[in-house]
Structures are given as C-alpha cells and as structure tokens.
Amino acid sequence: MSVSQAALEFPLLRGRRIRTRIGWVLSVFAFALVAAPLADILLLVFARGVSAISPNLFLLPTNGISGGLLNAIVGTFVLSIGALIIGVPIGVGGGIYLSEFGTGPFGNAVRFLSDVLTGIPSIVLGYFSYITLIIGLGWQFSALAGAITLAMMVVPYMARLTELSFRQVPLSLREAGYALGATDRKVIFSIILPPALPGVLTGALLALAISVGETAPLIYTAGWSNYVWNGKLTHEPIGYLTYVIWSFINQPFESAHALAFAAAFLVVLVVLVINVTARAVLFSRS
C-alpha cells in the first residue's frame, strides 16, 4: 500500500462518518416521530379525562348527551367478563391441545389458522355475528351477542399464550408424571398447569384489555342503551364505554365531549395498567 492510497481514503472515511451520523440522527428522529404522538395521546386523554371525572360519572347513567357513565361502565364490565367466560375455556383448551398433542398436521393447521384469525378485521367478525345472532336467531342487539363476538376475538390470543406457557414447562416433569402412572388429565392439571398458570392468567388479562378497548363489532351486536343493564342476555341492548368515545365526540356540546374524554380515560387506564403489568410478569419470567 502506498502513501497516496491512504491519503485518498481519508476523505472517503470522513464521508462515511458524516453519513453514519446522519443515519443515527434519522433513526432517533424516527423514534421521536412515533413516541411524540403516543405521549400526546396519553396527555390529551389524561388531562381532559381527569378534569371530567366526578362522583356523578360513576353514579348516574347517561342521559342524552349528559349525565354519567354508570350504564357504560357496567356494560363494558358485563361484555368483557362475558367474553372471558366464553372465550377463556375454549382458548385454554385449544392451547393445551396445541402444546401437548398438537404436533401433527391438525395441530399445525389450528396453529396457523389461529394466527390468521387474529388478523381478521373485527368489523367482519361483528358483521358475522350481526347476520347470524341478531338477524338469524333474532336476539336483537344484546349483551350475549356482544360477548360472543368479543370471545371470537379473544380465543386465538388465549390459545397461543396458553400454548407458549405450557411449552415452557420442562418435558421431564411430564415424563415423571407419566412414569408414575398418571393420566393425561392428572399430568396436565396437577403437574403442568401450576407452573404455567401465571402465563395463562396473563393471557386472560390481555384478553380483558382487548375486550375493554374494542368498538366496531359491538356497534353491530351490543347496540347502545341509556339504561343500566337489567340482567337480560338477549333482546336488550347494552351500553359500553367505547361507544361513548366514538359517538359523543361528534356532538356539538361540551358536556358530550367531557363524557367522551372521561370514557377514553377509563378505557386507556385499564388497557395501559393491564398491558404494563402483563409485560412485567412476562419479562420477569423470561
């Protein structure tokens, strides 16, 4: 290597240094571009939401465009818990099958289709429920139709998270169980489930967060009601918080906007607390 060649390379190196620096600046800028809107969303929802919080919010049902959110809070609770009651057993059962016996082509197909199902737009599932449950079975807008639709969204998540937590339990535990003559049921419920339980419960919490934040399919299945849920599963529409956000922000009244932001605050609070907790649990385990 001659001296002249080294001299030639120095300006080249300087060009590379500048380009890398610009590259890093752009990548930090990309991150800021994403983090700033998130910060603004949280700031907006928390600032406007907290200022709209009052005891009446939790004591009164909505009345036209004012009043409280009691009916919506109760409704969101009923719909989400209903979705968990229907969706968790199916998802957990399917997940156990995938983890313990799902190595064949059927297991692979279920696993693949479960991933595909999570990508189906929620409005399509909502419309499916609308034509089958609301029109077909004549249930009208109702709590049960809404809960079933949410359950359809929750099942594939539950199945995959259950499979994941069951797979983390070492094979030797299963072998020890079977060697002692235990049945499938005994091995699964008494040996594998206890260590896998935190993962399964985290999955159920994440499913709850999905249910609480969902809107589009509920418009077509749960409808909306100004009254607090009266316990009827069908033939009675039910209110929920996300409906208030969507519909009340378009009203030209300050009281309606306050309710929309209060509802958004409650929904975001629940969703954030659940997700941060779930991630902390999963992070500490891995």
């Binding site: 969303i41 934040g213 969902e214």
Partner: peptide
C-alpha cells in the same frame, strides 16, 4: 409496544 395497545377508538378521538 404501547402504541399497539391503544384502542382504535382512542386514536380516532385523538
């Protein structure tokens, strides 16, 4: 990741 869990309707509100 939190960007992915903000509900759709809250994005609409913002």
């Amino acid at each position: 990741e939190l960007l992915a869990v903000v509900p759709s309707v809250v994005y609409g509100l913002w």
